[in-house]
Each structure stands twice: as structure tokens, then as C-alpha cells.
Design a protein around this nucleic acid. Structure first.
Lengths: 212, 212, 212, 212
DNA sequence: TATGAATGAGGGTTCATTCAT
DNA sequence: TATGAATGAACCCTCATTCAT
């Protein structure tokens, strides 16, 4: 009863999800700023304007909340990346798409970079142990997708005969460093750090083309 | 008092430094493995075979200990890097030296990468806030050194006309990703991740040279 | 309003009582199994298939619910005991009736023994403090009834000249120990723990009759 | 070094034991009065005039503290009982010794009765689940000792041919009821509840000897 | 100087109770 | 009236830091 038009979700259920979203947002901001251990459940609840009890009605534990936060954003990212790769034509374009997708995503969710980015460097230390598994898996998925792009490009003679794993590390490492620099230098987008410049360096390297 | 002859350090002072070193070593291992918050002062003291009281006689606080640990290794790294850059001839060789220096250093001190690497991505989250300042400064010093290498290389027409900041990010990001992969995939040195392969990708990019 | 004809209880009132009964039953099982503190209001509501809100509409508090549970069963027991004592002829028979009544009652309601039995030994510890008063009163009523049986038996020369208080304690203590043993050893009725054996030991004591 | 005369315990170790004793005493009083769940660690620490932290330096957990408390007193009781049984001559005397030993012990440690006595009636509900095992075992030890006394007495024709298990339950149940009554009626020793009266009722039963 | 027991604020979590719907 | 989400005080426990010895 009542109008359940498109969504067929009860009001209760809709509210529940909204409240979860609000808490996840508050948590994202705090975890990103202070890290997992230094953020208290009380702070998250305060920031989201709920009581601790309510938080625990919606999430099993602080750890599980962190987990869900990462899974939510990571899924979002994975879906976006898959779509952009799918839309792009040919290996070179797919690499460009991957770069742009990543820069776009983390420009919008730069808080999340501080949470997820930690794992890029293999530093699982700052988070609950159980978590690293999830993060490693997600990184694995991203890497596998990109590796297959490079493999295709190498077979087609577009890319040089470089180990695809290494190619992915160069791509991911470079973009991570750039995003980190954005965040760290106070959020303005540096002129030179546009996708074009990144692609140029990835595709052609540092050496002067004319010199070759 | 006592003999201060050649070294102009008293036995007391020498012992003091040795004890600090032992504690810093124990701390490095634990911080790297479990992170700052999950490592207790008691554990560090136990591992180093001192009492907590002694630890506090030698270090102001847990936070300060972490600080000093990073400063110690970072200084070591900075000195080594400066020396290698100095020894190398010409911008291209200096870049090769920087890559090799970094891979060498973190292969020997991979524990330290889990501590210091966290800051690479701008993620100060996992550590006490005061700390990030030190780390940012150190990263700043490294970056400035490398930037001047690239500036020289560009002026000499060896490197393409790329923003040196971006070039440094590519260099640092790629090497970070590789080191992270080493550590994470269980410490064996992947075949393709030798300095030569890294330099190839940095210098010539991903595209097939013949295609150009 | 509504039909109140024969029973002079409205449907509302009848439902109310039925719901209270259902909740009390669920609570009895849980309190007996897990104790007062380890049983949550939520669990009771779930077990009885009501919401917590409904539970609180019917009972003032968890503590009061516990209270009423004990009062309900204790009244039931007191009525049954009074009836059996009334039906029995002479002090000795009344004692036999008391023993059988108690064993019968707690065989049927062994869950309740875990709740009420706690007070037997004067141990009010596990329950809310306010509760002990009710329990003490009920124990008092039982004891007074039994004491008057012994007083009569002594006056009639049937029982030895023992303090009736002590006699009641022997009767109650022995039966409590037996019921506790039943429950504890897993619910089978031990061969030797029949009312006859209990009465034998209470009436004639441990010493061999022939030896007298 | 220092004088370690009789005890060869360091001062540190002696203090440690003394502090444990003080906390156990405070805990005994509170657990006895309010039960396990209703007693907070903070309260115990306050009562013993230590900080919570100190309590946790000396005891693993609240549960373990409770455990140790029971084990300590129960061992004390078991030793005393064994000694008294050993000293007594013949089954009848041993039963007398058991009664007196129990009344003496719990007169001195009536607080402990509220903790340990709970288990007499098989009501394990009020305590942490792990605990009941310890208590059941201890009760088992006591019962086995007493059962063998009755078995011997029956074989020697001193006791009537009653199931020894039942005889033990009568002995234990009766004494429990009496101790409970002592505690509950405010600690004065009732005139009629002297060991002699208890033994009389246990040995000769309720019936008037002349009537037989 | 070296020790480690003592401290207590702060952590994550639970749950009896309330109240808007 | 029936519901169950929201509340927050209180729980047990940890650990960086201090200080008497």
C-alpha cells in the first residue's frame, strides 16, 4: 500500500538505506582524514548525526562498516572502468580511457583515495587485517583487466614487448602518484597533470622524440 | 669522564646510541608488519629486550619514536640518493641511478617501505598527524632533487618537454608500484621488474618504437 | 463495549491476558536457560513472536516481567500445595503430600526451578535486588505452612521434638537437592529418587533401623 | 638479595600476591551481594582501591577473576573437608565431621556461599557458562567423597540400605538450606541449627523414636 | 639509570527503554 | 494499538605514559 511506484521499496527500507548512506559518507570522510584506527565510532556517529546505537543497528561493527565503504566505492569504480574500457576502441584508446576514468573517479572521490590508495603500495598495515583481502582482490581485478588490454596491444604490435604486469604497474603507479599529488597540494588540478600529459609520458616516455 | 679519546663520545653516550638503534630496529619491524596503531610500546620494548621505562628514557613518546625511525631511514636514503646522483654522468644516467638506488634501498629495507610508502600516495591517514609533516618534507626533498635532474635533461634536449613535476611523479609512482608488488607478491624479485625494464618503460614509453 | 456477556471480560482484555501469558512462557524458558542478565528483552519478544514495543505495552520493565513470572508460578505452586495438604490426613501424610507435590510440580516445571531454586539457598545474587523480596515472601509462606504441619505432628507425638524450622529446612533442602540433581544429570528420573525413598530418609534417617 | 628468609619470594612477587588477594576479597564481597553480571569491574577495582588497569594487570578478565575466586575458596574447602574426614573415625563420625566442617566453613565465608551455593540447585544460569564446569566438577568431588563414606557405612551395617547418592543429597541439601537460612535471616546463628540438631535429624529422621 | 606495576582516559559494543509512525 | 528504529549510558577491556623503587 502507499505508492511504491518504480522502486517497490517500503518507506522503512528507503529510510534505512538513506541512513546507511549518511553514515557511510561520514565514515568515508573521517577514515580518509584520520585513518581506521584513529577514527572512533563515536566520531562517525556524531558526524552523521546519529547515535552510536543507531550506527550499530545499521552496521555490524566498525570493521564491517569500513569494509562496506570500500566495497561500495570499489564496485562503483570497477563498473565505471569496465564500461569505459568497453566503450573504447583499440588498446591505445582503452589505456587512455583507463587513465581518464581513474583521474575522473578520484577527482570526485578524493577522500576515498586516501583509504583505497593505501593498498596500492602494498601497505596493508594501517587497516584491519581482514580488510586487506578485499582490497587485494579488488586491486587484482583492476590489474587483470588492464593487463589484458596491454596483452592485446602487444599482440597487435601497438605496444612494445613489455611485460604487461610491468606496464600496468607503470600506469597505476603514475596515476596514483598524480592523484596523491593533487590531494596533497591542496586540491587544485595542476596544469600539467591533465590526462593528455599523463598519456604522453606513458606512451612515449621521457626521452625527446626528436633525439631518437 | 671515562675515555673519550678518539671518538669524543663517552661510553655512556655510545651505549645510549646503541640502545636507541636496537629499539628503532625492533620498532621498524613491528610498525611495518602491524602498522602504527596496532603496535604497542610494550611489544617494541619486548622485541628489543628493554623495559618500557628504558624505552621512554630514550624516546619521548611512541609517536616521536616513529618519527625518528622515519627520519633515520629517510636520511640514509637521501644520502645514498645524493651520492648516486652525484656519481652519475648526465641526466639520463642520473635517472637510471635514481631508479637503481631506490630499488636497491627498498629491497634491503622492504619493511621500511610499508611505513614510508604509505605517504607516497599522500595518504597520511594511518599515522599520527604530526608525522605527515616530516614525511612530506622528505618527499619534497627527494622530489626537488629529481626535478632538477629532469630540468637539466630538458634544457639539454635529452628529455622531452614534459613538466618535471610530472616526470618525477611518473618515476616515483612507477617505482613505488613495483616495490609494492615485490613486497606483496611474497618477496621474490619478478623477472621483468629489473631496473632495465623499468628504465625502458620510463624512457621510451609503452608504444612500440618501430611503429613510430 | 463488545460482548462481555458470560465472562465479563472484553475481547480486548482476553487477548491482553493471552498475550501476557505467551510472553511469560517465552520468558520462563529463556530466563531458566540463560539467566536474567544474559536474556535480552529482544530475545523474549522474538521467542514470543511479539515486538519489543508490544512487550513493553504489557509489562512495565524486564525486571517486572521477571517478577510476574515468578509470582505466577509461585502462586500456582502455593495453591497446589495448599490443596494437597488439605486433602491429606494427618501430619505424616501431609509431609508425604508436600514432598510429592513439590517433586511433581518441578518435574513439570523444571525450567522454573532454575529461576526459583536460586532463592532456595538464599542467594539473591543473580537477580535484580528488588526481586528477592517477593521470593523471600513466597518462601516464607511455604515454610510457614510446612512448619505448622510439623508443629501439629510434634504435638501429636508423631514427630520427634525437633525445631519445626529445622524440620522444614531438612524437607526443603533435601527435595531441592534432588530436583537440582534431576535437572543437572540430564532430566531422567533417577531410580532411587522416588518420593518413597525421600520420605524414608526424611522419616527414618540414615541409620539402620535394625541397629536401633 | 635482601632477606628472603622463609619464603624465598621477591618483594615484587609478595606484593603481587597481596594485591591479588585484596582484589579477590573485594570481588568476593561484590559478587556475593550482587551476582556476576550486576557487578562491574570498575566497582571491584574501586572497592579494592586499585585502578581498573591494575586489576587487569593481575587478572586476565572479569570471568577469570570469578573463576579464580571460586577455585581458591573451593580448594580451601576441599582440603579442609578431606582433612576432617580423614581425622574422623568410622562412617557416622565422618558424616558428623562433614556437617560440622561445612557449617564452620560457610559461617566464616558466608559471602562465598552466595556464589558457590547457587550451583547446588543446579542453577548455572546466573554465571558465565564456562564457569559452571568448574563448579560442577568441584561439587562432583565433594559428592564422591561423601558417597564413599555412605557406602562404607552401609556395608558395615551402620547406615540403612539407602542409595548413597540420595544420602549425599539429603546431607548437602539440608545443610545448604540451613546455611541459606543463616545468611538470609541476618547472620545470627539460630539456636536450633547447631550441628547436633542437624545430625539428629539426618541420623534418626523426623519420626519420634519412641513411636517406632 | 633501569624497571615494570599503576594509572585512567578512551576504545568498541550492547541493550533496556522510548516514541514517532 | 502495534511496531522497531533510535537512543545513550554503561559495559569490559587496552595501552601510552608515569614514577616509586
Amino acid at each position: 500500500m502507499g505508492q511504491q511506484s518504480g522502486k517497490r521499496l517500503s518507506r522503512k527500507e528507503r529510510e534505512r538505506r538513506e541512513h546507511r548512506r549518511l553514515i557511510l559518507e561520514a565514515a568515508e570522510e573521517l577514515f580518509a582524514r584520520k585513518g581506521f584506527h584513529a577514527t572512533s565510532v563515536q566520531e562517525i556517529a556524531d558526524e552523521a548525526e546519529f547515535s552510536v546505537g543507531s550506527l550499530y543497528n545499521l552496521f555490524e561493527s566498525k570493521e564491517r562498516l569500513y569494509h562496506e565503504l570500500i566495497e561500495m566505492r570499489a564496485d562503483q569504480y570497477l563498473r565505471k572502468l569496465a564500461q569505459r574500457l568497453d566503450e573504447a576502441d583499440g588498446p591505445a584508446d582503452k589505456v587512455r580511457a583507463a587513465v581518464r576514468c581513474k583521474l575522473d573517479f578520484f577527482e570526485e572521490h578524493r577522500q576515498f583515495f586516501n583509504i583505497f590508495g593505501n593498498f596500492v603500495s602494498g601497505a596493508e598495515s594501517a587497516s584491519p587485517p581482514m580488510l586487506s583481502k578485499t582490497c587485494i582482490e579488488i586491486h587484482g581485478q583492476i590489474h587483470r583487466q588492464l593487463e589484458s588490454v596491454f596483452e592485446a596491444g602487444i599482440q597487435q604490435g601497438i605496444f612494445a614487448d613489455i611485460d604487461p604486469v610491468l606496464a600496468v604497474l607503470a600506469l597505476e603507479g603514475t596515476t596514483n602518484a598524480i592523484i596523491g599529488e593533487w590531494i596533497h597540494t591542496g586540491s587544485r588540478k595542476l596544469e600539467s597533470m591533465n590526462p593528455g600529459a599523463v598519456e604522453r609520458i606513458l606512451f612515449h616516455g621521457l626521452l625527446d622524440g626528436k633525439a631518437k
